[in-house]
């Protein structure tokens, strides 16, 4: 039994090692791009929408809403990064329902790569928004003594991101395989359904945590704090609900 799809090597030439992880990743990429291309080939600007375009708009608007809620900023700069993270992880986890499909997110290499992307994106967004000095100053606050701890915090949360996603997906696959051996009839089906829910939740958690890290890097230490959001009361809606 292979715990990770990295162990399934389909092609190897020197240091180039094409594993099942990469192949399934490409399959997911191709599926997502082709689907998006097919739906958005004829974008309708009218108020009456085709169902698939309506679905994509609901998805994109939902992601924008989550980003806006967390960052209290315009979600447009973060949408491609956060959205791609969520869509890729969600698609990878949901496609695990297909027999024989090994989700790339069950590979520690993949989750590490995604965590590294977040690790790199956080300072890039922070520097882009606040500048070098202001961003680096964030590491020596409240006192320079905190510099090592802050650096360790950055590394540890990246590691936590990678391991959390990998652990959840891999454990689900492993538990499913074990249950399939012990009780092959009914119980694995329920576990697969639970894995779908778990996979979707993991995608959401990964994307939300990445958003939180970006928000912390771009707005958490600004001189003037953002205005408090009015609490939603009965009969009213807060801005974040839009």
């Amino acid at each position: 039994m292979n715990i990770s799809s990295d162990q399934i090597v389909l092609f190897e030439f020197g240091f180039i090692r094409i594993s099942a992880t990469l192949v399934f990743t490409w399959l997911i990429m191709a599926l997502l791009v082709l689907l998006a291309r097919r739906i958005t080939r004829r974008v309708i600007h009218d108020t009456v929408l085709p169902p698939w375009q309506n679905l994509l708009e609901v998805l994109v608007e939902g992601i924008q809403g989550q980003i806006r809620d967390v960052t209290r900023q315009d979600p447009a700069p973060y949408l491609p990064f956060i959205g791609t993270l969520f869509i890729f992880i969600a698609a990878s986890n949901l496609l695990a329902i297909i027999p024989g499909f090994e989700p790339p997110t069950g590979s520690l290499s993949t989750t590490t790569a995604l965590a590294l992307c977040v690790f790199i994106a956080v300072p890039l967004y922070g520097i882009q928004r606040r500048g070098w000095r202001a961003y680096l100053k964030n590491y020596v606050e409240p006192t320079p003594v905190m510099l090592p701890l802050n650096i360790i915090g950055e590394l540890s949360r990246t590691l936590a991101l990678a391991v959390r996603l990998y652990g959840n997906v891999m454990s689900g696959a492993v538990v499913g395989a074990i249950l399939l051996i012990i009780t092959p009839l009914f119980f694995p089906v329920l576990m697969h359904a639970l894995e779908l829910l778990t996979g979707l939740i993991q995608a959401y958690i990964f994307a939300i945590l990445a958003t939180v890290y970006l928000a912390a890097a771009t707005a958490a230490h600004e001189d003037s704090p953002p205005p408090p959001t009015p609490l939603p009361t009965k009969g009213t809606r807060s801005i974040n609900e839009h």
């Binding site: 375009q53 993949t110 790569a113």
Partner: peptide, 30 residues
Amino acid sequence: MQIDGFTVIAQIINFLILLWLLKRFLYGPI
């Protein structure tokens, strides 16, 4: 549980390509 360096790099590149493609064909039009 091991990390393959080549796979990590390839997945980073894959993610960046996917990001660009989705930005081009999904987020932009929508």
